[in-house]
Design a protein around this nucleic acid. Structure first.
Lengths: 229, 229
DNA sequence: TGCGGGAAACTGGTATGGAAGTATACATGT
DNA sequence: ACATGTATACTTCCATACCAGTTTCCCGCA
């Protein structure tokens, strides 16, 4: 037996800071922590039963993702949703997703026709059950799968980073348009499997740009969560 | 006069952590800190005359940019250049730059014909003087200007983040092809000003993809800086 | 009643000490 | 000569203490 190539995952033990960051991110995206809320290092530290240091590192990370605004000596607050920032994130995400979906469509030769079927079925089930969490998880999984099929799964990390800016809007739109989303995913999937990059690109752009119109409705219904601009 | 809304740049007072991070990034990109070098919090802290905490935060930031590898309880080292990572960064950068250059070309209507002239002249001067620092600064300025012209200057932040993965290769290629670069920039500029998105896209892709062939030469000349893969 | 003034209670930023884990040199026993 | 145990000197991660601004609020005063 050749043992020389054995390795185990050295990143397996996440630090407290990372866990805190993840937990806070979930809380922010799910609007458990509301836009505009002020939080402090010591407050969160006490709530988690840890010291300020790892919390501080989590804050810094979330601030870089644009979810927190750290004002030294003043406060740290959950940033309000900015239409501008959401659209900027959408622009970047679109550029990236178009690139990968085109590649996926171009290299579809050896893909089985039922590549997406499991995902679609699960997502429809989630939709019928009004299980938003599962629905969104499957939504992400679909987009991630496309990146993987294109041979550029690493791009998902960036798409995901952009997505956080859009996730709160998506959360607020909840019941709006779950069936429509599934239909759009089907269109994208078919375009990929038919090996048509141009069509896949068009469908993807159409899918992603729906947020441009949705966001204004969402803001009008949730003014207090949005930045005045 | 309403003074209540006045604000000055609250980011004006950079923290020690941010300054350390920037300084280290420069050192890494310019190969002053060599790929594979091990550094420690206390070591760097002593060298800068500060405590370990801000250094630690700088380390974390650089690790997220993919420049450092933190192995808890073991060491922190400057990551070796990975051809795979460089090409991944190039893929992302290309997707973003194509998106902005197309928009720039499409909205070129009211751009004066000499928009890029100053930059080109300065870059040629830097090339003649063999001033690599100035040359690369102008190079960045050109790409950044395109993003700005497209109305999406914020994309530059992301392009810049991807670029660090390519910067060390660029640094190693130094004298290679400065005139060629200027020529490519001219082609891109002309395509934009002539309002031809397709041509602008093609020129941009050609420009960015030169690294794909360069990188293998660079690696063969600097094996010790590259990851075995 | 309205308005300063200033102490006190916050905030985030930095410094420092200790805990837990790992690498390495070296002694020890066979 | 060669494994194996162990002391020691690192490393990062977390906790604690202190510092320097900022905000809040209450008290004294007009």
């Amino acid at each position: 037996m050749n043992i020389s190539k054995l390795e185990f995952d050295t990143e397996a033990r996440p630090t407290i800071a990372k866990r805190i960051a993840e937990s806070l991110r979930d809380a922010i995206v799910s609007l458990d922590l509301k836009p505009g809320d002020a939080i402090s290092e010591s407050d969160i530290a006490a709530r988690f039963g840890v010291s300020r240091q790892p919390v501080r590192e989590a804050f810094i990370q979330l601030a870089e993702q644009g979810l927190l605004r750290i004002r030294p000596q003043r406060s740290t607050e959950v940033v309000r949703i900015s239409i501008r920032d959401v659209l900027n994130a959408r622009f970047v995400r679109e550029a990236l997703e178009v690139a990968v979906v085109r590649k996926a469509a171009a290299e579809c030769a050896n893909m089985p026709a039922d590549t997406f079927e499991d995902l679609f079925r699960e997502q429809m089930a989630a939709s019928d059950a009004n299980d938003y969490r599962a629905f969104h998880a499957r939504d992400d999984a679909f987009h991630r799968l496309i990146a993987k099929l294109s041979g550029n799964e690493f791009v998902w990390k960036l798409i995901d980073a952009q997505k956080v800016q859009m996730d709160r809007v998506r959360y607020l739109s909840l019941k709006l348009g779950m069936p429509a989303t599934i239909r759009e995913h089907r269109d994208i999937g078919e375009a990929i499997l038919s090996g048509n990059p141009d069509l896949a690109e068009a469908q993807m752009r159409k899918h992603l740009r729906k947020i441009d119109t949705q966001i204004h409705q969402i803001r009008d219904l949730n003014r207090e969560y949005f930045q005045e601009e």
